[in-house]
Design a protein around this nucleic acid. Structure first.
Lengths: 150, 150
DNA sequence: CAGGTTGATGCAATAATATTGCAAAGTAAT
DNA sequence: ATTACTTTGCAATATTATTGCATCAACCTG
């Protein structure tokens, strides 16, 4: 992990559709050397995956909400029992257990309010272990990036 | 936007490093047709970008925190004045203005607690318009995806 | 329902890009 | 200095993307 690797990571986080030769040029490396570095970064797990980022509004997922959940019983088992099913909920894009009086925070990507209603019925109101939940709807997105400086 | 386009979007959201021929095969399309669809999806802005997703822990950004901020004055101008500078903070990966008593919610990606201390000094304590802020540290990440079903 | 328009398709040729082997140049430790 | 190990660039080769073109299907319109 030298300066060149870090530059590669930053460039690929911004645009992974660039050609290898292009990247190599920017780094002052030969294409083959550059490619071997990228492959190493993938193999080491530093680069987890290459994905397409969609425009949520254009694919009909314009609504974003955050839900903070307080559980009745917070123990490890109950926590897992609450978190596990979230993995299968396509509308749940992020779910974390957190410090503080709130137990879980999650981010939802929704089509409309009705979808929120249906989902919160299923995830919160029907779950006896959910003591309380608060929803914050996103009004404006000032920043939203997958980029992590390295 | 037919069923084929939707499938393409879902596949590319999962793995955008697949070859076009590979994708085309899975869809039962000729490579050229598949590629033209992808290009159209990019041109229409539905596909925003192709990026590399890194493993935060492996690039020394293992700590994740969420901060909820309440402003003294919440008007449009003050809101913008608070949000705008966040775009230039590499540690701030998400920032939203939200409904409810909290004005702003943001997600931070940090190296260590010291970095949090430095950052919160700069963003919150030094800003006279920040009335109150609460920090939730992420204990466990149950789910975190860029995938939006379409 | 014939005729025309539009847009999507597959094929095949071509261009661009990725991948590999290999010799040379660095690097670090002793 | 010598060795062991890693990284590099080059050039040949293999993959993959891209384009032109003829065909086909859907949809209007008169």
């Amino acid at each position: 992990m030298d300066r060149i690797d870090r530059t590669i990571l930053n460039l690929l986080q911004t645009d992974a559709s660039r050609t290898n030769a292009d990247l190599a040029g920017e780094l002052g490396l030969a294409p083959s050397s550059c490619m071997r570095r990228i492959r190493r970064l993938k193999a080491s797990g530093m680069i987890e995956r290459i994905v397409a980022i969609l425009n949520p509004a254009k694919v009909n997922r314009g609504i974003k909400a955050m839900v903070m959940v307080e559980l009745e019983r917070h123990g490890e088992t109950w926590m897992r029992r609450f978190l596990e099913p979230l993995k299968d909920e396509p509308s749940v894009v992020q779910a974390y257990s957190v410090s503080g009086s709130t137990d879980v925070v999650m981010m939802l990507r929704l089509k409309d309010i009705e979808e929120f209603d249906t989902l919160s019925d299923r995830l919160f109101r029907d779950d006896a272990n959910v003591a309380r939940y608060t929803t914050l709807f996103v009004i404006r997105t000032a920043k939203e990036t997958t980029f992590v400086p390295v």
